[in-house]
């Protein structure tokens, strides 16, 4: 109810006070506060219009109100978000993990992007394997959700609506990639986050007794910003972008998606499961770092733990 009211009042607001040109970007969920013909040049920020085109709007004309309700279920038009993770560049710096936790107000043990130590066979070298949610095109979690609390959007993103989720955890058993995290108890977050206007796009504040996971930060994408795990990575191991415009970026360099995946033999993790992930991996060849370096900022206990976990028992 509350949501509907909100949306409605926002629409009214547009009808009344905002000139036509700006109301075209109503769908992006950024509220234009004033837009008199600017007699002073202002910094422009890119935002995605409703038909998926990039338009520039005065920075001062924006305040952040996250998209909710039906808008958050539909997705950003014309976009297909993809991520490419370059395993050759990962050295378990764990910045993606901490940045993500910071952004979503997660406790230090809840990780929406996890870094695993993997070894495919006893003869091959171990490597670090950052794993966010794969935002599958055939998401097993979405299939099984009894109330449609988790859903697939047109822009490829799989989101969880914490205000719809009944906490049955079926999606957690259905996800073969262990991407989902249940909020077992109340988590202390900053005052600002606790009172934030909830949206499935921001996932803040998260709600106890519901399921959370990596959301590909669509609220950031609406402002043309990369997710924090991408910009946080000191080695530029994570690329993010729009498959439709064929451009991915790791924050410092941009590449053509098709070219990168083609040239570097990008692959899907466990493609045989038929889930069609939207996260691609570049194999850990010609690595920048020895995997041992990933142990640098770990305690002895953690090191031992990681080493043991890759030794197969049989």
């Amino acid at each position: 109810m509350e949501n509907e009211k909100n949306i409605k009042s926002r629409r009214d607001f547009f009808r009344k006070s905002v000139p036509l040109a700006i109301s075209a970007i109503g769908g992006v969920g950024l509220v234009a506060e004033s837009c008199q013909a600017a007699d002073q040049e202002e910094e422009k920020v890119p935002v995605l219009s409703q038909d998926g085109q990039l338009v520039y709007v005065d920075k001062s004309a924006m305040t952040n109100v996250p998209v909710t309700g039906q808008e958050a279920r539909q997705g950003i038009p014309g976009k297909k978000f993809v991520m490419i993770i370059d395993l050759a560049r990962c050295r378990n710096a764990r910045k993606c993990v901490s940045k993500c936790q910071e952004m979503h107000g997660l406790p230090s043990e809840d990780e929406w992007i996890k870094v695993f130590l993997m070894q495919d066979s006893d003869d091959t070298a171990p490597y670090w394997f950052p794993k966010p949610c794969f935002h599958c095109n055939q998401p097993p979690c979405v299939k099984v959700c009894p109330v449609g609390a988790t859903y697939k959007r047109t822009d490829g993103i799989v989101l969880v609506d914490n205000e719809r989720c009944i906490g049955c955890k079926f999606c957690m058993t259905a996800c073969p990639y262990s991407s989902r995290v249940f909020q077992w108890n109340e988590v202390e977050v900053s005052h600002e986050m606790a009172h934030a206007h909830y949206s499935p796009e921001t996932s803040v504040p998260s709600k106890v007794g519901t399921v959370g996971k990596c959301d590909f930060c669509p609220d950031m994408a609406r402002q043309g910003k990369l997710p924090d795990c991408v910009t946080g990575c000191p080695n530029g191991a994570i690329y993010f972008g729009d498959k439709n415009e064929d451009i991915v970026s790791n924050g410092t360099e941009s590449q053509r998606f098709s070219q990168l995946v083609h040239d570097r033999a990008g692959y899907h993790f466990m493609a045989e499961l038929g889930t069609e992930p939207n996260v691609y991996y570049l194999p850990p060849v010609d690595r920048l770092f020895d995997y041992e370096r990933g142990f640098n900022n770990l305690t002895d206990e953690q090191k031992e733990f990681y080493r043991n976990s890759i030794v197969k028992k049989h």
């Binding site: 972008g241 729009d242 451009i247 941009s254």
Partner: peptide, 10 residues
């Protein structure tokens, strides 16, 4: 460059 959503592609 070509303008992308998140970055410029050289």
């Amino acid at each position: 460059y070509i303008q992308g959503t998140f970055s410029l592609l050289n």
